[in-house]
Design a protein around this nucleic acid. Structure first.
Lengths: 167, 167
DNA sequence: GCTTGTCGTCAAGTACCTTGACTATAGGGA
DNA sequence: TCCCTATAGTCAAGGTACTTGACGACAAGC
């Protein structure tokens, strides 16, 4: 790790965590800005993350909860906002009186389309900046990491100081 | 927990932004958990990010602001918390009556040392999971991306009113 | 002196997420 | 049938991590 520092400029952080955070933040900022340009100024990071899970055909709110890593209350608050903006609508599930179906409105579908376009544009920009080879390597490493982390979590039940979700 | 995969399971997001966010989140969770295990339960993600900028010799609060990507008020609030926890202390700058110097306390330095250790441990874990070659490629790509983004920012030097979108 | 710019603080508000407590419905026994 | 429990979703309160705006204290230039 780079640790050379002179008096004036101490080294910026350069560990994986920092780099990942920085890159993630930059992506989100770029995405949100582009979406605002496209006229979707209701757009925020968390909403983007949630919408990414909703398929075009809609889905059960409970399925959305399973799929996202956050609490059902958080999901609900996000959906409340999205519903108020007219991006999604909630319909009663005919199969289950308790459940609700979350579905894109027409406006939501438009946003989804623009979102996909913007994502591809950003990706193209990245490839232009660092080259296709490096980009491919990046994605490959990130996917491998995600897979490895999921595996580590499964196996982790009962190792060391279990600070995690066992509250 | 049995996760049944229907034929209806829609694909999880797989674009760069999602992967970066996911990886960043996982790192932060892992780091925070390890720090709590080490006895530093005052630790949070934002604080970690801020402390990463403070060199062992301390620095001006204003320099910290320049270096971080967040507002000075946010920095101040984080520092308020860290000071209350006894991690850093703020001293008047003898060179400038307006300025203050932020410096680690002994407790803070202990935490810093543990933090560095934990970071290395996580890094080793990553290398173990995805291999050294991939890890190196990941870091290389992330660094290149950061450099490219800085350059792009200088280039569009955008006024806030004029939102730019390339291509 | 006065003005302008920097440094830090105070106040208020927003986005996102949490836990706790609750209602309504579903589905399986007894 | 009535009860029991699990699931789906909601309501309320709170906390962290930010934001913008306003402001006072000091520095440095005339």
């Amino acid at each position: 790790m780079v640790k050379e520092l002179d008096e004036k400029t101490e080294a910026l952080p350069d560990h994986v965590g920092w780099r990942l955070w920085q890159a993630s933040r930059a992506w989100q900022v770029e995405f949100a800005a582009a979406m605002r340009v496209a006229g979707h100024d209701w757009f925020t990071e968390a909403r983007a993350g949630l919408l990414g899970h909703i398929g075009r055909s809609g889905m059960r709110q409970s399925a959305l909860i399973e799929r996202s890593a956050i609490s059902k209350q958080a999901i609900q608050q996000l959906l409340d906002g999205l519903e108020a903006e007219g991006i999604v609508e909630r319909l009663p599930d005919p199969q289950d009186g308790r459940g609700k179906l979350v579905r894109y409105t027409r406006k939501g579908l438009d946003a989804l389309r623009d979102g996909d376009r913007v994502k591809m544009e950003i990706e193209r920009g990245y490839i232009g900046r660092i080259g296709e080879e490096r980009f491919t390597a990046l994605m490959s490493a990130l996917r491998a990491l995600a897979a490895g982390q999921a595996a580590a979590m499964d196996e982790d039940a009962g190792a060391e100081g279990e600070v995690v979700e066992s509250k």
